[in-house]
Design a binder for these strands. Structure first.
Length: 578
RNA sequence: GGUCCCGUAGCUCAACUGGAUAGAGCAACUGACUUCUAAUCAGUAGGUUCCAGGUUCGAAUCCUGGCGGGAUCGCCA
């Protein structure tokens, strides 16, 4: 399906047919669309990679390979250029056949097999269940979700997972904060002391607690009500978070509770697994260099020898009082995930960058020593409103939530804007630009292209009575009329799609899909506007049903591609945009 | 101070994981709306890819050392 992979194979078999002596390494050989159109349709570096191994000059070798390719009916011409590039020019017939191929594949067009059914677990969001999701979580949610969809499309068996941090002291804080709102609901005057969560999203939780518990909790001592309220409030927060995610179009396959690890022996089991490898010991850590912790005192703790696997210092898994640190259940959690999946991917916020090495170390130590965990860091989001940065602060409760974002600009825009950026680059999110339905906003550009195609398909039967525009008819149409440069350029762009899927999936970089779609939309708009000046190049030719059908097939193939790409990103392909 | 990420046109970002003359959008300038929806298109101009070395046929990309920005650094999660 990926034509560049096809031609790479073609070139390599031509190379093989030359019976060159010795073992030839071809791993570095690539076949790709050249940047410069004058370099043909497919550029291959085979001669440069192999020349030294066989003791020939790259250009001579290239000429020899070229001679073996000229008989291929898909290839019009082969040129040797520059230091030894092999530039293939493909025939019109071959390009035209790509349109039918795309239409026949339909919603599967671009699907790859590189996943080969391997189980991959993508863990993302995993926000503490202490409040609504905010902008930072949103980026992680969108990124993780698009990556999961991308991997699914590339043939992986994907699990979307959320790790609920409900085992630490922050859920106690949540419980105390919710308890205050419960008292408030009973008419008591409350004071939210420092360290508790002030957000008014807890007000309805307090009211619901009043309905649910009546006044029974009012007279209890804290050790009595705390576990009850903790349970109740955590569940309420998860309901809130699930609803937020649903509005963004994110649906998890699995929620995994940290708390569920305690008391089951799973943590002990994971630690024993490390201990068996001699990686657990009692010790005292050195203070961090250069920084002077005021209250530093040496303490003996149970440590994990993460330095064995590339970490900078060993990490504590038990506090000095003997209870587990946050890291311990996390190790157990990953131990569990490693048993459920072949590959793990974690989406972390930039503030967790310090945990990357120790987490990877733990996974290597728990497995067979290979690196089965990839951690993608998502950088911070800066919000801009009216040209000024909008500062958020947890203390004052001044933060922009995921819900705010969606209500103001909509899920499609939020998702596309956040995906039109590499995950490891900081993101400026400008409300004003996001709201602007214009060229400055890539979402509309792509959606407009899709809508334009839908419009042409709606209009064609009005102008040519009885014209069939269904996919099956278009896929079997005679496409020999597609010969204009702009038409061939669009076909070539469409034919690149499977290749981008493969590359984006291997690199774990969904932003490549977004950029490709923008590029593809540009080719479509370009073709459309050629028809503005030259009426003979419009999609619909009232006196030529055959040509019209061919052109509709082409643009429909483009729409299918856009739609497949947008589905990965979780953005709606619009039928019309009035 | 350690670690991780980033540094590309005036601005916001790409660059197919080492490929040929580094590309788009915005802003500036020139042109195309009795339209298959101008939410669009065609063109002009804009660069020492932070700096200095190194690796090779070939570097924005890889390695080393600087400079600048951000994040983070033992019983918080």
């Amino acid at each position: 399906m990926d034509i560049f992979a096809e031609f790479r194979a073609t070139v390599l078999s031509a190379l093989e047919a030359m019976d060159l002596p010795g073992e030839i390494k071809t791993a570095g050989v690539s076949a790709e669309p050249p940047r410069d159109a004058s370099h043909g349709d497919v550029a291959c570096n085979v001669a440069m990679v192999v020349a030294k191994q066989v003791g020939q000059k790259p250009r001579d070798l290239a000429e020899a390979i070229a001679a073996k390719l000229t008989d291929d009916p898909r290839i019009d011409a082969v040129e040797v250029a520059g230091p030894g590039f092999l530039n293939l020019r493909l025939s019109k017939e071959f390009w035209q056949s790509r349109v039918s191929a795309a239409l026949k594949a339909g919603a599967d067009f671009g699907k790859a097999e590189i996943g080969a059914g391997k189980r991959v677990n993508v863990e993302y969001v995993s926000a503490n269940p202490t409040g609504p999701l905010h902008v930072g979580h949103t980026r992680g949610a969108v990124f993780g979700d698009a990556l999961a969809s991308l991997l699914e499309f590339a043939g992986y068996d994907v699990t979307r997972e959320y790790y609920i941090n409900d085992g630490g002291s922050q859920v106690d804080t949540l419980a105390r904060s919710a308890m205050l709102r419960y008292r408030e609901a009973h008419g008591q005057a409350i004071e939210i002391v420092d360290g508790l969560y002030p957000g008014d999203y807890l007000v309805p939780v307090g009211q619901n607690m009043k309905e649910h518990f009546g006044d029974s909790l009012l007279t209890q001592a804290e050790e009595e009500w705390l576990p009850v309220v903790r349970e109740y409030a955590t569940e309420a927060m998860m309901d809130l978070i699930r609803a937020d995610l649903a509005d963004l179009g994110v649906v998890m396959d699995q929620f995994f509770s940290e708390k569920s690890l305690y008391g089951t022996g799973l943590i002990e089991e994971a630690v024993t697994a490390l201990d068996d490898k001699g990686l657990i010991y009692q010790g005292v850590l050195e203070p961090p260099k250069g920084k002077k912790p005021e209250d530093w005192e040496p303490r003996e703790q149970t440590l994990f020898k993460s330095t064995e696997y590339g970490d900078d210092v060993d990490r504590p898994i038990k506090k000095s009082d003997g209870s587990w640190t946050y890291f311990a259940p996390d190790i157990a959690y990953h131990y569990n995930k490693l048993q459920r999946a072949d590959e793990l991917i974690n989406i972390f916020g930039a503030d967790h960058s310090g945990y990357v090495k120790r987490m990877k170390a733990a996974c290597k130590a728990l497995g067979d020593g290979t690196d089965r965990l990839d951690i993608k860091l998502v950088q911070l989001v800066k919000l801009f409103k009216n040209g000024e940065e909008f500062k958020m602060s947890k203390r004052s409760g001044m933060f922009v939530t995921l819900r705010d974002l969606i209500e103001e600009v909509g899920s499609d825009v939020v998702r596309f804007v956040m995906l039109t950026r590499k995950n490891d680059a900081p993101l400026d999110f400008d409300f004003d630009k996001a709201l602007e339905q214009s060229k400055d906003n890539a979402v509309y550009y792509v959606q407009y292209a899709h809508a334009r195609i839908c419009s042409a398909l709606r209009k064609a039967p009005e102008e040519l009575a009885g014209l069939a525009t269904d996919d099956a008819t278009l896929a079997d149409a005679d496409l020999s009329g597609l010969t204009h440069d702009s038409e061939l350029a669009l076909i070539a762009k469409i034919a690149e799609w499977p290749r981008h899927v493969g590359q984006a999936a291997t690199a774990h970089e969904p932003h490549r899909v977004a950029f490709y779609l923008y590029d593809l939309a540009g080719s479509l708009h370009g073709l459309y506007n050629v028809g503005q000046r030259d009426v003979g190049l419009r999609f619909i030719q009232a006196d030529d049903p055959a040509l019209t059908t061919a052109r509709l097939a082409l643009v429909r193939a483009c729409a299918v591609t856009i739609s497949n790409g947008l589905r990965i990103l979780g953005v709606t392909p619009m039928q019309e945009m009035r």
